Amino acid sequence: MRNIIILALIFLGTAVHAQEIRRISYATTIGTGFDMSKPSCTPFIWQVSGNYNFNERLSAGVGTGVSLYEKTIVPIFADVKFHICKPRKFTPFIQCSAGYGIAVSKDTNGGIYINPTAGISYSVYKRMKLFVSVGYELQKLERLKEYDSEIVTVEFSEKLSHNLISMKVGIEF
């Protein structure tokens, strides 16, 4: 009798597991934003990320990309995404990315990168989703500036903090 119960539980476990959660997902986004800082700069943002899906609503991972402000920044960040409800055709989500932006040019130092967003995803195919998101992005950096006049030449460090409303579209697969 005990063996029959064990076999029934094994069979039931495999039958219930019919809707398997895909453990790894990848996403790529492009976007821009409205810079609320001075000096103001409208950036172009491209990012890729890979996430581990803990369940159908929560995932975490890492990502990188390129942010083109007045200087090129390469952010490296940790990413957490939470679907507000059980995934459907249209699913709202909240997401937060945080890390460090590495400056590409010699006269610039990178800084802290933070990007909390809210958005909605649209299921196109079994494993493919299109999404849009709006959020706040903070990218700090420091650049070396030079002032030339007939009398004096001066170099100084300028600390910038880009605070922008970001808008992104992407695809997850």
Rank of each mutant, 00 (worst) to 15 (best):
H162R: 02
I4E: 15
V66F: 09
N53F: 05
E158G: 03
K86N: 14
V80H: 04
V124M: 15
V124E: 05
D107Y: 08
P75I: 00
C41K: 10
A60Q: 04
G101S: 09
G111R: 12
S37K: 05
T29C: 01
T72F: 10
L160E: 02
P92N: 10
I6S: 12
M167R: 01
Y122K: 04
F54Q: 11
A98F: 07
V104F: 04
S133M: 05
M128K: 11
K81A: 07
I151W: 13
V124F: 15
S97P: 01
S59K: 01
M1Y: 09
A118G: 14
H17N: 13
V16Y: 08
G13M: 12
I24R: 03
Y26C: 06
V124P: 08
M128E: 06
I114T: 01
R57D: 08
S123Y: 06
G61K: 03
E172W: 04
V80K: 00
N3H: 10
I102C: 10
V74Q: 02
I10E: 04
T32M: 11
S67G: 13
F77K: 00
M167W: 04
K106F: 03
K86C: 08
A60V: 06
E172H: 04
M1D: 13
S37Q: 07
M167E: 08
I112D: 03
P75G: 02
Y122M: 08
I76Q: 03
V132C: 13
D148V: 13
S149N: 09
I120Q: 00
D79T: 04
R143K: 12
D148P: 03
S25R: 09
L7E: 12
G65F: 05
P92V: 09
R143Y: 05
A27I: 01
K71H: 10
V169R: 08
L68F: 08
A8C: 06
A15T: 09
Y113R: 04
E172G: 03
I10L: 14
F11G: 15
G135H: 01
E20P: 04
E20V: 08
E70A: 14
I73N: 01
V124K: 11
I84M: 08
T117K: 04
K71R: 15
Y69K: 02
S166F: 01
R23F: 00
C85H: 06
I165C: 14
A60L: 04
K106G: 10
E150R: 12
P87K: 05
F82G: 14
K106W: 07
M167Q: 07
L160V: 13
F54K: 11
G119Y: 02
A18P: 05
S49D: 12
G135D: 00
I73V: 14
R2L: 09
H162T: 00
P116F: 07
F131I: 01
Y69Q: 01
E56W: 08
L144M: 12
G135V: 01
A18G: 09
K86D: 15
E172Y: 06
T28W: 10
Y147C: 13
C41H: 14
I84R: 06
C41Y: 12
H17F: 10
P75T: 06
S37E: 03
Y52D: 00
A118K: 13
F77Q: 00
L12A: 10
K159L: 11
Y113D: 01
F93T: 01
T42A: 08
L130G: 04
S123H: 07
